Amino acid sequence: MAKQSGKSYGELQNQSINIISEGTLINGDISSNGDIRIDGELVGNIKAKGRLVIGPKGKVNGEVNCNNIEVSGFLKGKLTVYELVTMKASAKIEGDIIAGKLSVEPGSIFTGNCTMGDSKGKNEKAQTKEQK
C-alpha cells in the first residue's frame, strides 16, 4: 500500500466509498482507505482511514478504528475515532469510546466509558510506552 504524502486533514484525495447495503451480513474484518457506509450487518472489526457511517438499520459488532464516524444504528465494541464521533438520535452504542470530539443528539443511547481529547497523541504515547 502506498502512503499518502502531505496534509489531508482527515480526508483523502482519491477516496472511495464502500457500501454494505441492508440485508447484507458480513462476518470478518474490513480495512479501507476510503469511506464506509453500513446499512446491513457486520460481525468483525473495521479499520477505515476515512469516514464511517452506520445507517439507522446498520449493526456493527466489533472494534472500530476510523477518523470520523456517524452512528444512526447499533454499535457494540470498542470505538477509537481520531476526530469526531456523531451519535444521531436513533444511535445505540455499547462499549468504550476514545475520541477527539463527541457530538450527541438527544435520544441516543450510550453504555460504556468515554475518553475525549487528542486521541492520536494518546495512542502514540501508549504505543511508545509499549515499545520500551
Score class of each variant (00 low, 15 high):
Met1Trp: 10
Met1Phe: 12
Met1His: 06
Ala2His: 07
Lys3Ile: 13
Gln4Ala: 08
Gln4Lys: 08
Gln4Gly: 10
Ser5Val: 10
Ser5Ala: 15
Ser5Trp: 15
Ser5Asp: 07
Lys7Ile: 09
Tyr9Cys: 13
Tyr9Met: 12
Leu12Phe: 12
Leu12Trp: 13
Leu12Ile: 11
Gln13Cys: 10
Ile17Cys: 12
Asn18His: 09
Glu22Thr: 07
Gly23Val: 06
Gly23Asp: 03
Thr24Phe: 09
Leu25Ser: 12
Leu25Glu: 08
Asn27Tyr: 10
Asn27Lys: 11
Gly28Asn: 02
Gly28Val: 05
Asp29Met: 04
Ile30Ala: 14
Ile30Asn: 05
Ser31Arg: 12
Ser32Gln: 11
Asn33Gly: 11
Gly34Asp: 12
Asp35Met: 03
Asp39Cys: 05
Asp39Gly: 06
Gly40Cys: 03
Glu41Arg: 15
Glu41Phe: 01
Glu41Trp: 00
Leu42Tyr: 01
Leu42Val: 15
Gly44Asp: 01
Asn45Phe: 03
Asn45Lys: 05
Asn45His: 03
Lys47Ala: 06
Lys47Thr: 02
Gly50Gln: 04
Gly50Ser: 08
Val53Ser: 14
Ile54Asp: 06
Ile54Thr: 06
Ile54Phe: 15
Gly55Glu: 05
Pro56Glu: 09
Pro56Val: 14
Lys57His: 05
Gly58Pro: 09
Gly58Lys: 02
Lys59Cys: 05
Val60Glu: 02
Gly62Met: 10
Val64Asn: 00
Val64Phe: 04
Val64Lys: 00
Asn67Asp: 11
Asn68Phe: 15
Ile69Arg: 00
Glu70His: 11
Val71Met: 13
Val71Trp: 08
Ser72Glu: 11
Gly73Ile: 10
Leu75Phe: 02
Lys78Gly: 01
Leu79Pro: 00
Val81Asp: 00
Val81Arg: 00
Glu83Arg: 07
Glu83Ser: 15
Leu84Lys: 07
Val85Met: 07
Val85Lys: 04
Thr86Met: 09
Met87Thr: 12
Lys88Glu: 12
Lys88Asn: 13
Lys88Trp: 00
Lys88Leu: 14
Ala89Pro: 02
Ala91Met: 03
Lys92Asp: 07
Lys92Met: 06
Ile98Phe: 01
Ala99Asn: 07
Lys101Leu: 13
Ser103Pro: 00
Val104Glu: 03
Val104Asp: 01
Glu105Gly: 03
Pro106Gln: 05
Gly107Ile: 04
Gly107Met: 15
Gly107Asn: 00
Ser108Lys: 08
Thr111Asn: 08
Gly112Met: 02
Gly112Ala: 11
Thr115Leu: 09
Asp118Met: 10
Asp118Gln: 08
Ser119Lys: 13
Gly121Lys: 12
Asn123Tyr: 04
Asn123Met: 14
Glu124Asp: 10
Lys125His: 14
Gln127Glu: 13
Thr128Asn: 14
Glu130Ser: 06
Glu130Met: 08
Gln131Asp: 07
